[in-house]
Simulated assay, not measured.
Amino acid sequence: MFGITRCILRGASRQPLSSKRGRNHYKGTGSGPMGRHTKRGGYVIEWERVRSFVVPDLKDFKRVVVQ
C-alpha cells in the first residue's frame, strides 16, 4: 500500500511549470480555443473566435535610423 501512495505523491507536485521541469509538455499561451472538436475527430474553426490583429496605417510613417 505504501508503494502506491509514494508513487502518487511523487507525481503530484505543486511547483510552477518551467522549461526545465516540463520537457515534453507545451504550456500554451492561455488565449483559449478558436473552434471545437467534432464527434468524428475533426476540428471546426469558429471564425468569430479567431484572433485578428489591427495594423495601423503606416503610409506617412517616417523611418528613423539609429546608428
Rank of each mutant, 00 (worst) to 15 (best):
C7S: 13
V54D: 06
R14N: 09
Y26P: 02
W47H: 11
G41K: 03
T5C: 10
G28Q: 05
W47S: 08
S52W: 07
Y43D: 03
T29L: 13
G42K: 01
V55E: 10
S19T: 11
E48F: 03
I45M: 04
C7A: 14
R51Q: 10
K39T: 11
R6M: 13
F53T: 11
N24T: 07
F53P: 02
G41D: 06
R14F: 11
L9N: 12
S19A: 13
P33T: 14
G32S: 02
E46D: 15
P16H: 05
R40N: 15
G30Q: 00
F53W: 06
E48N: 14
I8C: 10
T29E: 10
G41P: 01
E48H: 13
G30R: 00
L17S: 12
R23L: 14
N24R: 08
Q15L: 11
I8S: 07
R36G: 00
K20L: 11
V55N: 08
K27G: 01
S19I: 09
L17A: 15
R21F: 04
S18G: 14
P16D: 05
V50Q: 04
Y43S: 00
Y26T: 09
G28M: 02
T29P: 03
K20H: 11
R6G: 06
P33H: 10
R51W: 04
S18I: 08
N24M: 05
G41L: 05
T38E: 07
G22R: 03
P33F: 12
V44R: 06
G22Q: 08
E46T: 07
R40C: 04
A12Q: 10
N24E: 07
V54H: 05
M34P: 03
V55M: 13
L9M: 12
A12G: 05
R40L: 09
A12L: 15
Y26I: 05
S13G: 09
H37E: 14
G30P: 00
M34K: 07
R14K: 09
S52K: 14
K39C: 01
T5D: 12
R49N: 12
R51I: 03
T38K: 06
K20A: 14
G28I: 04
R21V: 12
R23F: 06
G32M: 01
A12V: 07
V50W: 02
T29Q: 11
G22M: 08
P16V: 07
T5F: 11
F53L: 12
M34S: 08
A12Y: 07
C7V: 08
G32R: 05
G30V: 03
G3C: 03
Y43P: 01
I4F: 10
G35M: 01
S19K: 12
N24P: 00
Q15C: 03
V44W: 00
T29S: 13
S31T: 01
T5A: 12
S13Y: 00
G28H: 04
T5Y: 09
R14H: 04
G41H: 04
G35W: 05
K27Q: 10
T38S: 14
H37N: 13
V50S: 02
K20M: 04
A12I: 06
K27T: 09
N24A: 09
P33Q: 14
T5W: 07
G22T: 12
P33M: 13
S31I: 02
Q15I: 02
V44N: 01
